[in-house]
Structure formats: structure tokens, C-alpha cells
Design a protein around this nucleic acid. Structure first.
Lengths: 110, 110
DNA sequence: CCACTATATTGCCATACAGTCATTTAGTGG
DNA sequence: CCACTAAATGACTGTATGGCAATATAGTGG
């Protein structure tokens, strides 16, 4: 028969995660971490975002399990917890391409 | 060498999409559409959301290319534009499972 | 203990937006 | 033309939250 619906609870949890990465600043942070772990200061420098701002975003990303945290002296190193985030981005990009080519097709058909 | 960074523009576009599905109501609508196309009224009934509310969410989902729209008399039928949305959910769920089992491991290790 | 650097936290403001209600628009039948 | 139903739109409100500036906390070296 039909596919199973998501429970309201799971629905909220999933939405929360998507919302977390549905934010340019956080996505930018994750994208920067794509190349390897970074300290907060490095992230501030590379993203151009404010320090407190980066710190807050990192807290959220860490709480939701998107990044890992490693303390070493004065520095705190953050890294992407699991590459599946990028898989998500790739699929979303694939969607974009599909959209774009569909739009091209529509335009061409005139 | 390192991976290519996303352009700020693409970053915003992708974030916008994730944000769109990072909303319980919209995710619920998409989940309902998983079983096939639905009219607005049907979606209202099956989700329990308000009519105007559903309509507005559908506008957004349609603008971003997540759903298609088909007009037939008084009714407007909406459907999922491409199943990749569910793929995204599956991956996100996979992440959740990984998280949960990791947490279990931590708890067990005490 | 003090000065310094890195990170986290807090308070504040402005904005975005989900939800609700009311209204409008569109299509249908009598 | 009118009554009815479906869907879209607009006004309004409350809440959530991103960004910023200031401050607090923590770790290090002198």
C-alpha cells in the first residue's frame, strides 16, 4: 500500500536539521570546513563573519551533530562530523541544474 | 589541491532551498504529496493546517520548484516535482541514525 | 597575579516569517 | 446574474533569530 508517513516528531527533527543548514552563514562555515578542520579565528577570517556570530553558529551546528569540536590549548578546532552534508548539497545542486535546464527547455520551446 | 568553494551566490540559493524544506509545515505537505498529487483542500484536511497557510506554503514550494501545479476546474492539483526531496530526507534520517547510535555508544561506554 | 589571546555568552535591535482571519478572485451550476 | 465552492491574497500579530557590540570565561606566558 502507500508509503509510510513521517511521524510529527520525526518531521520536526528533520525540519530542524534542514533549517540549520538552510542559512547562508552556516552553510558557508560548513563549506569552509570542507577543506579540513579550522579554529574559530580561522573561520572568522575566511568567512568574513563576526566572531560572536561564528561562535554561535558553531554551537548550533555542534548541537545538531554537524561538526565536531576539539580543544587544544587556547584554540578550538571544528571539523565536519560527516561528509553526508556535502552529499545533501550535491543533491540540492542537482535539483538546481534540473530546474535550470527545464527552464531552458521552456524558453527554447517558444 | 583543495576542493572548490561555493560562490556566495550559489551559497544563498542552496541555503534558500534547504530553508524551504526546513519547515515542519512544508515538510509535512511534501510528505503528504509523497503518495500522489493532492488538491489544496485535501492537503488542508490531511495536514490539519489552515487553508491560507497551506496555500502560501505551496506558493513557495512551487516557486522553488519543489512541486508542480495542475489546474482542473475549480481544483488545483499539486504534486512533488522530483523525488530527490525524499532522497534528501533519507540522507538526513541516515545522519540521525548515525548520531543516535553514536550517542548510544557513548552512553554504553560509561 | 597580570597581560594577552581565543572563544563563548549576553543583551539588544531589526528583520523575517508562520499562523490566523478576512477578503478577493476564479470557476461551476442553477 | 446569483449562490456556492476552491484557491489565492492581504493585513495583522507574535515569535524566532541573525548580526552586532560588549562582556565574560578560559587558557597561556611573563
Amino acid at each position: 500500500m502507500g508509503t509510510i508517513r513521517l511521524t510529527p516528531e520525526l518531521l520536526h527533527i528533520i525540519a530542524e536539521r534542514f533549517k540549520a543548514i538552510g542559512e547562508p552563514a552556516r552553510l558557508q562555515i560548513l563549506d569552509t570546513l570542507r577543506e579540513g578542520e579550522r579554529t574559530v579565528t580561522e573561520l572568522v577570517d575566511e568567512t568574513g563573519l563576526g566572531q560572536g556570530n561564528v561562535s554561535k553558529h558553531l554551537q548550533l551546528l555542534h548541537t545538531l551533530g554537524f561538526v565536531t569540536r576539539r580543544k587544544e590549548g587556547l584554540h578550538v578546532y571544528y571539523a565536519v562530523a560527516d561528509r553526508s552534508v556535502f552529499k545533501l548539497c550535491d543533491i540540492m545542486c542537482g535539483r538546481l541544474e534540473a530546474e535550470t535546464s527545464a527552464r531552458r527547455k521552456v524558453l527554447a520551446a517558444r
